[in-house]
Nucleic acid binder design. Sequence first.
RNA 1: CGAGUCGGCCGGGUGAUCGCGGCGCAAGUCGAGGAAAGUCCGGACUCCACAGAGCAGGGUGGUGGGUAACGCCCACCCGGGGUGACCCGCGGGAAAGUGCCACAGAAAACAAACCGCCCCGCAAGGGGUAAGGGUGAAACGGCGGUGUAAGAGACCACCGCACUCCAGGUGACUGGAGUGGCAGGGCAAACCCCACCCGGAGCAAGACCAAGAAGGGCUGAGUCUUCGGACGCAGCCUGCGGACACCGUUUGAGCGCUGCUCGCGCGAGGUGUCCGGGUAGGUCGCACGCUGGCAACGGCGAAGGCGGUUGGCAACAACCGCCGCAGAUGGAUGAUCACCGGCCCUCCGGGGCCACAGAAUCCGGCUUAUAGGCCGACUCGUCCC
RNA 2: GGUGGCGUGUCUGAGCGGCCGAAAGAGCGCGCCUCGAAAGCGCGUGAGGGGCAACCCUCCGAGGGUUCAAAUCCCUCCGCCACCG
Length: 111
Amino acid sequence: MLGSESRLRRAGEFRDTMRQGVRAGRSCLVMHARKTELPPSRAGFIVSKAVGKAVVRNRVKRQLRHLAAAALPATPFPVDLVVRALPEASSGDLRTEFETALTACLNRLAA
RNA sequence: CGAGUCGGCCGGGUGAUCGCGGCGCAAGUCGAGGAAAGUCCGGACUCCACAGAGCAGGGUGGUGGGUAACGCCCACCCGGGGUGACCCGCGGGAAAGUGCCACAGAAAACAAACCGCCCCGCAAGGGGUAAGGGUGAAACGGCGGUGUAAGAGACCACCGCACUCCAGGUGACUGGAGUGGCAGGGCAAACCCCACCCGGAGCAAGACCAAGAAGGGCUGAGUCUUCGGACGCAGCCUGCGGACACCGUUUGAGCGCUGCUCGCGCGAGGUGUCCGGGUAGGUCGCACGCUGGCAACGGCGAAGGCGGUUGGCAACAACCGCCGCAGAUGGAUGAUCACCGGCCCUCCGGGGCCACAGAAUCCGGCUUAUAGGCCGACUCGUCCC
RNA sequence: GGUGGCGUGUCUGAGCGGCCGAAAGAGCGCGCCUCGAAAGCGCGUGAGGGGCAACCCUCCGAGGGUUCAAAUCCCUCCGCCACCG
């Protein structure tokens, strides 16, 4: 679904993406995005305890990873994404919100 | 058939497509739970030099077993509940000592006497008594009788209690006989006493590598010397730096063994205040252990599972055979679809739902959450043969 | 993963076996003061249920236990907070 080379794994990568990138908020997630030089687009996820118990958090994280695996190869330029799940993520429509947020971020980065 | 008690088990299945993590060159192979949870106990393991003694502190608390160990499990005893199967119990000691028992009540623990009762007395009052009343959670053995002025274990029978003896049992304890003649109410999940157990921290333990500010100490030989010392070099050890103050270097500051004392060890630095800086890395531990191999893998073993035999009422143990063994680190174990299986609704076309819940060093327990379903043993009631 | 702590009226919080539904302060309501307000002063005020009323019952996060008696002692859960190299 999404290999470890396409994941953000360092606290510094998360911090740089969230501070230097653009941002798009939806009702159950917040997406940060940043252009990168190297080809493999990467993604990272923040799912806090406010989302739910461990089972719910794992499920949300896996759904987000599937969405990112489908979307990342289709971007016109390599990007780093950070997706923060909000407390409504366990019951909301993750798919459409992820896609609209991603197009919003890409439009803003292309401009 | 109805009502109920106890114990055990499962925790949706199959297929297709697209994916993820470990191992492997690859083909391939392995990949969440009965609770993985809470962190309430116990161990393994690691570090604290060794894991020492006494006190303090903490824990456990009927008896006997099981176990690596336990606060767990099994069997039994006692007390309480239930017609019964069965269930519940932190279930040692209150004649070692201390403490507490509010309010009410005369009196709350060692003896006394408020209303009473009885006797003496005209009365005031004095004496006897503890049956009855009243208060209270609890009032100095209970019920009945004898007795008496009224009464009282003062005496008697039964019950309770204490002691002695006998019998049974490893034991807790039980049964029986006799004696005493009623004495010391409760609380130890109050302090405490008794018996037994416990060194502390915890995988963010700990080991190694890299990086780092800027060094510091000891030893050795060398050079210079005003004989106080200074300088660079090598080896080893150690390490955030600086300023100020205080204490100290064999007459021992301080540190460690978590508190105190002893004992033991380390020991030349330590403590306080202020200022400045640094701190997000990797490998192992770690995927059951040891061992051979570059590795996949093989061999041996066990505190794993299953099956069997033997011993035991049982927990469990011994032996034999077979099988299995996730290992991530911003953290894999997933998503979609179809069919079948359950449950609910239905306008009979169909529609909806599928429990609790996600490994993080490992293991043995306990506790808590849990849709639905299966199996076994037993009890009571009713009916039939 | 581990360690430690805390839950009491609407809020902040004391109380740690009995006179405790519970101190104190804030808040809120009413009154005095003022032309009016603020400040100040005085009084009152927890929630739920039952009852015509006087009044009664339950509640200190939840449940169970010890005790004559529990907010307080013991056990098990639930929720929240802090810390670790």
